[in-house]
Simulated assay, not measured.
Amino acid sequence: MLSKPLPRLLPSLALLLPLALALATSCQSNTPETDTAASGSQPAGAAPDSAGTKFLSKPLIKDIYTADPSAHVFDGKIYIYPSHDIEAGMPENDNGDHFAMRDYHVLSMDSIGGKVTDHGVALDIKDVAWAGRQMWAPDAAFKNDTYYLYFPAKDKQDVFRIGVATSTSPTGPFKAQPQPIEGSMSIDPAIFTDTNGGSYLYVGGIWGGQLQRWRTGQYDASNPKEQEPADNEVAPGPRVARMSSDMLRFAEPMKEVKILDQDGKPLLAGDKSRRFFEGAWVHKHNGTYYLSYSTGDTHLLVYATSTSPYGPFTYQGIIMNPVQGWTTHHSIIEQQGKWYIFYHDTELSGKTWLRNIKVAELPRNADGSFGTITP
């Protein structure tokens, strides 16, 4: 969920941004649950699209800015765990400091296209003892009659860690554990529970997500903020660890997930249209594990497949072409025999750090492969 300054956008993508941008004020909200229709009012200061851009879907809510939607079906109902974007008044930089989010809201809907309910603040950074700043993209799971919220935040030393909070309700409020998960790192936690009941946590994001600083297994503070391996070196992959039975700890050290091309060779760092950048999501279909993720600076959502939750995963293709805006982050669910992708863009604000979540049907072929959609 990292952003880069607008001048470094690919030229073709930059042309997609609205021609007229309005100043956006803070949209921090601590309101209790509210019902929001897709045609509801926009956040204060939001600019309607003025470039004639046509969008595949409309924002799910418009009274706060949301991004990085992790969607799950719990007891037949859809719950969405997004980031909550705010106008922090900070200049954009390569490290993503202007993404200064401070809390999480939980959204719900009975079905795709139905009314969306915002259940208010589920967890605030002031209630996370170890956290310093920047509550980025979360995810959630249900197990042991408990709902678990996994979230990244920078600790007091400005190192991203993964925390976990619990609740008896899918909408919270959530109570955070006093310390981050031991051995955790980086950003974008994605929790996957297999058909045999085992649960796995995937994490990782390069650049401001700091994954490149963990190449030796220890955090390297001296590594330049954007330093990746050389183009001819193997690209860093996300990390994965099986969770303990109580879902609060790792049952094993984190392992790197390898992503290969069709010839079985690891993707290289220079292969920027296929290599992992951030935003991993894992689901299982007909015995096959699907790893989907963002390519970051080439703005694609792509996927790879494996016979094991640990990988290696073999690259298969593009799920979604670039959205309006710099970042792209998603989740995939099945409901009533159809597949859907939740994602975000910047239709409401035209600003890369003030995003809005959306959902669209995701075409799936009989062999399990995905078609490519243009948002």
Rank of each mutant, 00 (worst) to 15 (best):
Y310P: 07
S57N: 08
D97Q: 13
P363Y: 13
P152F: 01
A153K: 02
M1I: 05
Y148E: 01
S294W: 04
F151M: 09
S244M: 10
P5Q: 00
R249V: 06
N30Q: 12
S349Q: 04
T374N: 15
D145H: 12
R274W: 03
S294E: 07
P82T: 07
G198S: 14
Y310W: 02
P69F: 00
K255S: 06
F342Q: 00
P43F: 12
L362C: 11
I80D: 01
T117Q: 14
L211K: 14
I357K: 03
D345K: 03
F313L: 01
V116Q: 01
W326E: 09
L15D: 11
P138Q: 00
P253W: 10
A22P: 09
T25K: 13
H344W: 08
A241G: 04
P152K: 06
D220V: 13
D297R: 08
V159E: 13
A122H: 08
G311C: 02
A235W: 04
S57R: 05
H119E: 08
G264V: 00
L6T: 13
A280T: 06
W214T: 13
L260G: 02
I341M: 10
T25V: 15
F174S: 03
F250S: 03
K284Q: 15
V359E: 02
F342C: 05
S331N: 01
P238F: 01
A129Y: 04
K4W: 12
P170C: 05
G208V: 09
G172E: 05
K265I: 00
L248G: 07
L15V: 10
L260W: 01
I80L: 11
I319A: 09
Y79M: 06
Y343N: 01
D297A: 11
E256G: 02
E361S: 09
L19A: 14
Q210W: 08
L17G: 07
A141I: 08
S306Q: 06
A71K: 00
D194K: 07
Q28D: 15
L13G: 15
Q210K: 10
S39I: 15
V323I: 15
R364G: 04
Q157M: 08
S26L: 12
Q134P: 03
F142D: 00
